[in-house]
């Protein structure tokens, strides 16, 4: 096992991590401000990917498609906020879970109705389809580095938005004391719609970026949704910083688990069995991580309002 191999796997962990962060940031923001648990966040991820693929196919430009994906996800977010989510803010988590679970069914079938049952084509922009040489040999796909760049930009952007802008001030106010923002004369409905749309847009961004790398198909949002929940639960629900740390942790554990666990098992077992057990353990690793973190810190690594 060469140093380049380990370095490459670390880069892979980082790339998975920042992508999960973009996905989880929206989820945790919505929870922090409105106290809403949104299972349909994965559907917004899917909306972003489908619109990106569709528009990129029509115009021939990935970047135009990406813009369209962001707009579509934000718009879908704003619409469901006004039609559905708004009625759920003062309900308990149970109602929120069921209502947003229903939204998943609606979005999945709706998307299939509009776009058809077959997966859509979306490839990375031609200019990014090369790899960059790594120190110690081998190459690393440029597009994955670009994704890391998008992720870091999102993190910085969110930090600036929340700490430096008027909207950010209102968001912070909303997180600590919901009644206060009403008293400040802020139109709370608009604020909530805006925050939800931002969260949705982030999901759409993740969907479009990852869709180009993976596949654009109905139901693509659910596995990612569960990962994003693992991330925000580990980080502390409502905490953006927690989401970042949680995402990197999950990225590390998942990638390194897949890369090394079966080799660990191979020390004690014949290769075929080691592969099987290694793969089984690798798919459970992040849930194990989550259980350990919560057993140790029941409100996550960075508890909000503790």
């Amino acid at each position: 096992m060469s140093a380049a191999f380990i370095f490459e796997q670390l880069l892979n962990s980082l790339q998975l991590g920042v992508m999960l962060f973009v996905m989880a940031a929206g989820l945790t923001l919505v929870f922090g401000v409105m106290g809403l648990i949104n299972l349909a966040h994965g559907s917004l991820y899917m909306v972003g990917a489908f619109f990106c693929a569709w528009v990129a196919g029509e115009t021939g430009s990935f970047w135009v498609g990406l813009g369209a994906g962001l707009v579509a996800a934000a718009a879908a977010g704003a619409v469901i906020e006004m039609l559905v989510m708004r009625r759920l803010y003062d309900r308990d988590h149970l109602d929120q879970v069921l209502a947003t679970f229903s939204l998943i069914l609606i979005f999945n079938e709706g998307t299939r109705w509009v776009f058809g049952a077959q997966p859509l084509y979306l490839d990375i922009p031609a200019g990014l389809a090369t790899s960059v040489p790594l120190p110690g040999g081998g190459g690393y796909p440029l597009y994955r580095l670009v994704i890391i760049g998008f992720g870091i930009a999102t993190a910085v952007g969110l930090y600036l938005l929340i700490s430096r802008t008027r909207l950010g001030m209102q968001i912070r106010a909303g997180e600590s004391d919901r009644e206060m923002i009403g008293a400040l004369g802020v139109d709370i409905n608009t604020l909530y719609t805006l925050v939800f749309a931002i969260g949705a847009m982030l999901a759409g961004l993740a969907g479009a970026l990852v869709g180009a790398l993976q596949s654009v198909e109905v139901g693509m949002g659910e596995p990612v949704l569960i990962l994003a929940f693992v991330v925000i639960v580990i980080g502390g629900i409502g905490s953006i910083k927690g989401a970042l740390i949680g995402a990197i942790l999950v990225g590390l554990v998942d990638t390194l688990g897949r890369a090394f666990l079966h080799k660990l098992f191979a020390l004690a077992l014949p290769p075929a069995e080691a592969n099987g057990y290694g793969a089984a353990m690798a798919s459970m690793a992040i849930y194990l991580l989550m259980a350990i973190v919560l057993a140790w810190r029941p409100k996550g690594l960075f508890p909000v309002n503790a």
Binding site: H93, I226, V233, A280, S283, M284, L288, A291, P298
Partner: peptide, 22 residues
């Protein structure tokens, strides 16, 4: 049960996922 609220919802989900993948 050391956790509550959304954490409880999600940790029960996580355990179920572990058993599913197993």
């Amino acid at each position: 049960l050391r956790t509550s609220g959304v954490y409880f919802i999600m940790i029960t989900l996580a355990f179920a996922q572990m058993i599913y993948y197993l």
